[in-house]
Design a protein around this nucleic acid. Structure first.
Lengths: 196, 196
DNA sequence: GCTTATGTGGATCGCTGATCCGAATAAGCC
DNA sequence: GGCTTATTCGGATCAGCGATCCACATAAGC
């Protein structure tokens, strides 16, 4: 890649990150290009679709979450690992408003630029779930696909301005359905009482 | 209203219903007008915004759901009433793909044409929830707003082609978190195996 | 049948993302 | 340093979107 092209690409990524954080993933691509002092065509050549741009932006975070799942697999109890990772996943999506919808669409669209990242993330969650299930700490009638769907739905909830205030609490509600509450004493302490 | 105007309005509603069922709520308004052999301006005068059009289309269903909640309040056990009504709500939204997102946005936007209907629906659910809680059949740390959010999230799940196949199952998972399983004998039969 | 208030829809605006292609320029070679 | 060439750039343009305007058509009331 030519030096000027690389510079433009990096600059565009930085500007896009700011713009999307401010206005959500539906921000006008023309605006991003304008803010980066670049033609719209240039933006669209580097990132042919909005998803390609998001993929480049989110890939780092994706990898971090996947890595964290791997680390938790050995460092925490099966139950805590799953709960903590799920919370991280949901919390992370709040950074890029609207991204979760694209992820939900990408998970089974093999043409999407986001597809591979989503599948990897889902697999990481599935491993944590399987481990928790084997330890008898998670209900066994759900699988990785269900887990991904639940996380996605909770993240979407946090994306809706009108529902976001309840997102944390509802995460606890859903989590209580996933994690078997046999060891309820320890749990009651770990998970904050959200509302009296 | 003049006779021709009324006719146009009714015809537009019928065409819009078909179009939205086929293509989801994001269907082009221009397309709807074209299919109704009417100018775009005419559609937009009868229904100034997409939400106004949806409000007119959905109002009947809204009222039915609200009425059903009222009927269940006396005809069924608090638990069955809540569970059955929630299921109906989620199932209903599948008819108009994408409508749930507009509803979530309308619930706290008093300017929205859908606002009043959404608030009424939420209140109906809240009454069923309160009744179930009073009977000790539902967890007491959630309220009507939480319930609306959960239903909305589940409905959104059913709207996503990639997640929809799990929507029914995940409804059961979430429902098991809302309804307290103290009377597990009666429940165990009605609800599919929650925890094997 | 005439008048008037109401309803209509083509034309147009500003916006979106997508695409084309002449102009600008960095990289490689002598 | 100067030349050539392959790469990159971005203004211009296109089709689509919802919103708005206003000259024209028409139903309703007398």
């Amino acid at each position: 890649m030519r030096a000027d092209a690389r510079k433009n690409r990096d600059h565009l990524l930085a500007v896009a990150g700011t713009a999307i954080t401010e206005q959500g993933v539906d921000v006008s691509l023309r605006d991003i290009a304008r803010r980066a002092d670049v033609g719209l065509a240039t933006l669209l050549r580097h990132f042919p679709t909005r998803e390609a741009l998001l993929d480049a932006l989110l890939r780092t975070s994706f990898d971090e979450l996947t890595a964290k799942a791997g680390a938790l697999e050995t460092s925490s109890s099966p139950e805590d690992a799953l709960a903590s990772w799920l919370r991280d996943c949901v919390a992370w999506t709040t950074e890029y408003r609207g991204a979760i919808v694209l992820m939900a669409a990408a998970i089974e669209d093999t043409e999407s630029a986001l597809h591979a990242s989503c599948v990897t993330l889902r697999a990481a969650g599935a491993r944590l779930l399987t481990r928790a299930q084997a330890a008898g700490m998670a209900r066994t009638d759900i699988d990785g696909v269900d887990l991904f769907a639940l996380v996605t739905a909770l993240a979407w909830l946090g994306d809706q301005p009108s529902l976001a205030p309840r997102a944390d609490h509802l995460f606890d509600v859903v989590a209580s359905a996933i994690l078997t509450s046999t060891a309820s004493s320890a749990e009651g302490e770990r998970r904050p009482r959200v509302r009296s």
